[in-house]
Simulated scan of single mutants.
Amino acid sequence: MCTEDTILPTGNIKVDKGTKIFTPIYELHHDPKYYPDPEVFKPERFSKDNFNKMPDVTYQAFGKGNRICVGMRYAQLQAKIGLVYLLKNFTVRTTIFEGGIKYEKNQLQVRLTNVEVEFLSRM
């Protein structure tokens, strides 16, 4: 929320005190200016070498600044442990249907629409 009347330096836009400003995270994460071929899965773009070359504000999965998510590292650790357990106990088989991978873009999440994922027990 804007705490005082101001004019943004980019675009000369007037913002009144009390105006709520939201960062469109999905659009930022899919901007070809920062992520060439944003719909292509390229995990190497988040390697330490490449990640340090990106402007700091282009990846905001857990927010930025003073109000960054306090559980970020804990959540990442839990996700990694969950993946290790999943891959240790299951074989993952995917079927991609005609037309390649497609996404349903909702406000809160991105979902695959034409991919079937099956978990086969290793036990």
Score class of each variant (00 low, 15 high):
E116R: 14
L86I: 08
D16V: 12
Y74E: 02
I68P: 01
P32W: 05
R67L: 10
M54G: 03
P24D: 15
T23L: 15
Q78H: 03
Q109M: 14
Q60L: 15
C69K: 00
V110T: 15
C2W: 05
Q60E: 05
K48P: 02
N12P: 08
T19P: 10
N106I: 08
K64T: 03
G65D: 02
K88R: 15
V70W: 01
L77P: 00
V84E: 11
G99L: 06
P38D: 07
T58L: 06
L28K: 04
Y103H: 06
F51D: 10
D5T: 00
V57E: 14
F90E: 00
E4N: 12
Q78A: 07
V40P: 04
V70H: 01
E104C: 11
E98F: 02
F46E: 03
L83V: 14
E116N: 12
L77T: 02
E104Y: 13
K14Q: 15
F97M: 05
L120E: 14
T58F: 07
P38K: 08
L86N: 00
A79F: 10
R93G: 04
H29F: 03
N89A: 04
G63C: 14
K64V: 07
E27Q: 13
T113R: 15
D5R: 01
K20G: 09
E116S: 11
L87W: 07
V117H: 08
T6E: 04
N50P: 00
G65Y: 06
M123I: 09
D56N: 12
E118W: 02
D49H: 08
G65W: 05
L83D: 01
T95L: 10
E44L: 11
Y35K: 11
F97Y: 13
